[in-house]
Amino acid sequence: MKVNVRPLCAADETAWRELWSGYLEFYGSSVSETVYATTFSRLVDASRPAQFGLIAEGGGRAIGLVHVIVHPHNWRVEDVCYLQDLYVAPEARGVGAGRALIEAVYAAADVLGAPSVYWLTQDSNSTARLLYDRVAKVTPFIKYQR
Rank of each mutant, 00 (worst) to 15 (best):
V68G: 05
T121W: 04
S126G: 05
L130Y: 00
H73K: 08
D45Y: 05
S116P: 00
Q84Y: 07
I55H: 07
I63R: 04
A114K: 05
L83C: 14
A136E: 03
R42T: 13
T34H: 10
I69A: 10
V95S: 09
R76M: 11
A62W: 04
G59M: 04
N125Y: 05
G58I: 00
L112M: 15
N125M: 06
A128Y: 01
Q122R: 13
V95A: 12
Y87W: 14
C81Q: 05
Q51C: 09
H73C: 10
Y82N: 12
V77G: 09
V105E: 09
T127F: 00
E33W: 01
G113H: 02
V111G: 04
A108D: 11
Q122P: 00
L130K: 14
P72S: 12
V66G: 06
L43V: 02
V88L: 04
P115G: 07
S41Q: 12
G53I: 08
P115S: 04
V70K: 06
I55A: 04
C81F: 08
A108Y: 10
G96V: 09
P90A: 09
V80H: 08
Y87I: 00
A104G: 11
A114L: 05
A107W: 01
A100R: 13
Y82L: 13
G94K: 11
A97W: 09
N74P: 06
I102W: 08
T38D: 14
A109G: 09
A56P: 04
F40P: 07
Y87H: 12
N74S: 09
E33K: 12
